[in-house]
Amino acid sequence: MSITVRIPTVLRSATGGAATISATGSTIGEILAQLASDHPGVQPQLFNEDGTLHKFLNVYVNDDDVRYLGGLQAPVADGDEVTLLPAVAGGFA
């Protein structure tokens, strides 16, 4: 079981410059936990302190946003591509 994870530019300093990383697991939660375990610098960008997915990170399995697929429980399968992109958000409040 191998999943390709695409790392956004702003997280590459924490992954030794790697733009893609291979991971194994059956859910998004397992994939991201492995990523954080292998590259501790990304942990605070992926997860809130309570272990939930960081609000300002978009996570996609192939073309789909995981928030519509069950969040950290979203299933992944061999050959899937997971993309991480920081949310582009801001404003007055």
Partner: peptide
Amino acid sequence: ADSARVYEIEPKVLLRTF
């Protein structure tokens, strides 16, 4: 964000554009 005070780019637009 559908708001006059905050914004968030549509995640699908973000993925497609990247």
